[in-house]
Design a protein around this nucleic acid. Structure first.
Lengths: 152, 152
DNA sequence: ATACCAATTGAAAATCGTTTTCAATTAGAA
DNA sequence: TTCTAATTGAAAACGATTTTCAATTGGTAT
């Protein structure tokens, strides 16, 4: 499964004149292996365990490419404006983020279309899109006290 | 009207052991006078026209206080994670931002409660809040070509 | 297998936004 | 007017991100 996904991604990269390198593979493994949203720094630290020579710049560059190709999502939390997540559903979706552990749940089917249409009609705005994220605490964190600190 | 609002704010500041200074008044005049969301830099540039000696640090410090007192809103847009806006409706609301001119329209009544309740029920999450913003182009910009560049 | 070229890499420096430090100034209560 | 705590601006510190550049490497063509 993991290998399949990565070779698939390798193909997508090649199609766009990008190359699959061990560094990029390591970054992808970290992102794929996490259900949390991770900052570039967090990804860096994790990748270093498997690939100590990697540079932080490479993380940034890889993330930029992956985001351009829509392979990863960039999450905008209130506190932390930049972290990344493997793109799981293919279509339009949003995220619900646990403030304690960083767990992210995908949400498909936001019912904002009718609101958008109403707003458009009332204000004359042409609405291109929206940014929607829910934040709170997941069941597991609630159960064990929910007072954990933010993960970085 | 302008003077009234500012003296009202002066009172709120005093109640919280803050002082009303010419610098803070200048910042407030800029924010009050704009219907766009403004970055600290943008506010700085505008305030400088009336008050050239002001320091950028003062802008940051003033914004922090005003946001703490809930007198201004901090807006998180996709591109720009930090800009400020006079707080207009008092309760829960969101913004619709024009990508061309920066015009902001307040939206009260997002119908997300039922979605939140459903998600909560289905996933066990305790949802604290959400981040919602619409972006697009306002009527005026559409009419005159809509190709303007981003404002900073 | 080999050669080749464009893409990629890491280190260091540059840049940007933001925060901290500090000594001098100022608002506003007494 | 006096006094004190709050405020100010400059400079330095800081952290995140980007740019520059010479050296390396992936993958296609041979």
């Amino acid at each position: 499964m993991k290998t399949d996904a990565l070779t698939g991604i390798a193909g997508i990269l090649r199609k766009n004149t990008y190359k699959m390198t061990p560094q990029r593979r390591a970054v992808l493994e970290v992102i794929t292996g996490s259900h949390d949203h991770l900052t570039p720094q967090a990804i860096y630290r994790r990748v270093q365990k498997k690939y100590p020579a990697i540079g932080l710049v490479t993380i940034y560059r890889t993330l930029e490419i992956l985001a351009d190709l829509n392979l990863v999502c960039r999450v905008h939390a209130e506190d932390n404006c930049r972290s990344y997540l493997m793109r799981r559903p293919n279509g339009h979706h949003h995220h619900m983020v646990c403030k304690s552990c960083g767990e992210v749940i995908d949400i498909t089917g936001c019912n904002l279309d009718e609101l958008e249409q109403r707003l458009s009609r009332e204000t004359g705005f042409k609405i291109d899109g929206h940014l929607l994220e829910f934040n709170g605490h997941c069941r597991a964190c609630l159960d064990r006290g929910e007072n954990d600190n933010e993960q970085r």
